[in-house]
Design a protein around this nucleic acid. Structure first.
Lengths: 73, 73
DNA sequence: TTGTGACTTGTAGTCCGTG
DNA sequence: GCACGGACTACAAGTCACA
């Protein structure tokens, strides 16, 4: 499922920045618990917030989705 | 704005397939008018539907976003 | 520091039309 | 074939208390 793949990927990249969910959420002006649920793959996140997160991670959206969403599960 | 860039990109790729909005929407089981508004950059589309469109266009999401979302406008 | 259930509000998304 | 609108329902956005 794309939501879970994306969530995992976001968590990986965020961990690489060394920031906690809280710090990162603060940085991109997003609620911490919302970010947590996105990382957990529970939210059908929209493009505006994907863009926000990608910018916070300093990667393009294309880069963010690299290697994911290729198959249906 | 990311919504507009994405809409334009989707339209380009859809045109390359030779399908009308209606035919393409039907193919991916999406509402015709909704697809139109997405292409027009008016909708904050969610990841599930982005995935749906990418699959219909036979490209990865990463490929779909190639070259867009790099700057703020 | 992170996960989760529950909740309200705004809008995503659907279905019916029109020129 | 497409842009646009009205009216509706489903669900994402955003926030909270608590674990």
């Amino acid at each position: 499922m794309i939501k879970h793949e994306l969530g995992k990927r976001i968590r990986e990249l965020r961990n690489q920045t060394g920031l906690s969910q809280e710090k990162f959420a603060l940085k991109i002006d997003m609620d911490r618990t919302y970010l947590a649920s996105v990382e957990a793959g529970k939210r059908n996140i929209s493009i505006i917030n994907i863009d926000k997160i990608a910018k916070g991670l300093n990667v393009s959206i294309s880069k963010l989705f690299e290697g994911i969403g290729e198959n249906n599960e």
